[in-house]
């Protein structure tokens, strides 16, 4: 570790909420960026001591090794159900978030996430969408784009045979129980900063007891896409964003007032 010289200030350093453990993610995987953003938000909001994460099944199952917070590991897709239990048993003392991939949230866990949102559970969901099943070797997921080649759709996803991708954020935004549902991308520094703000608002939603919040993060999967990390960022921008537009799909009025007020103060 380099030491600080007399006339210097630290502009950026590793967040405290991350452990000093090397992740198992492939080089360039934006799971790491998402982890870092969540950790930075927990640091800045001072929530590290009372946060409980619920890990999903997928590449991010080992998230419990990488954050210095409490974790529960849920069966595949059941993270929102487990999070519901944790949050309801400790409604005031805990901050509960799930960290789920698209195979977990949009496929096997569709029922759990829809009902958690419909009930308006006061939990936060970080949803990573990388358009395939990363951990098992890049098979077609519900979020795989039409025409996208994966190991289980080798001539490209045929929508007549395999249906259309699920836009989970838009779907959940239709539910009355959901309070804050947005989609952000992790393909360049500007969008990463926007993603961090969204994650912050999502946790604020929970701290203020305003109900269900979800941030969908478009991510890359360089190994399974068969590209370099830098090429993958370009592919995400060119192919995923047209299908999965970045935007706020539901922001309840209590949060909008907050945003306007803070803007006026700032």
């Amino acid at each position: 570790m380099a030491t600080l010289q007399a006339n210097e200030q630290v502009v950026y350093q590793r967040p405290r909420a991350l452990t000093e453990v090397n992740t198992h993610y492939c080089p360039g995987c934006t799971h790491g960026v998402a982890h870092r953003l969540v950790a930075e938000v927990l640091d800045e909001m001072g929530l590290q001591d009372r946060t409980v994460g619920v890990a999903c099944v997928g590449c991010s199952v080992f998230a419990y090794n990488y954050f210095d917070i409490d974790w529960v590991q849920a069966p595949h897709g059941r993270a929102p159900a487990v999070a519901t239990g944790v949050k309801r048993s400790l409604p005031h003392d805990s901050i509960v978030f799930t960290y789920q991939g698209d195979g977990d949230l949009a496929s096997i866990g569709t029922a759990e996430i829809i009902h958690a949102a419909a009930r308006g559970e006061n939990i936060t969901v970080i949803y990573i969408n990388n358009a395939n099943y990363g951990m098992t070797g890049g098979q077609m997921a519900p979020t795989t784009l039409p025409g996208q080649k994966t190991t289980s759709s080798q001539t490209g996803r045929d929508v007549e045979l395999q249906g259309y991708p699920i836009r989970a954020a838009e779907l959940l935004a239709n539910l009355d129980g959901a309070s804050y549902v947005v989609r952000r991308s992790l393909h360049d520094p500007k969008n990463i900063r926007m993603a961090k703000k969204a994650i912050q608002t999502a946790f604020e939603t929970q701290v203020r007891g305003l109900g269900f919040s979800l941030v969908e993060l478009l991510s890359i999967c360089p190994t399974n896409w068969g590209m370099t990390p830098v090429e993958s960022l370009g592919w995400l921008n060119d192919h995923m964003i047209p299908y999965y537009p970045i935007g706020d799909f539901k922001v309840i009025s209590a949060l909008q007032k907050e945003t306007c007020a803070s803007k006026a103060e700032g």
Binding site: M1, A2, L4, Q5, N7, E8, Q9, V10, V11, Y12, Q13, R14, P15, L18, N22, T23, Y25, G28, C29, T30, H31, G32, V33, H35, R36, A39, D188, P189, I192, R193
Partner: peptide
């Protein structure tokens, strides 16, 4: 600190002359 913003491993510490 743009490099630190995109670094997936939080491996970069950035210093700036005050």
């Amino acid at each position: 600190a743009v490099c630190a913003v995109i670094c997936p491993e939080a491996a970069i510490t950035v210093y700036r002359e005050a």
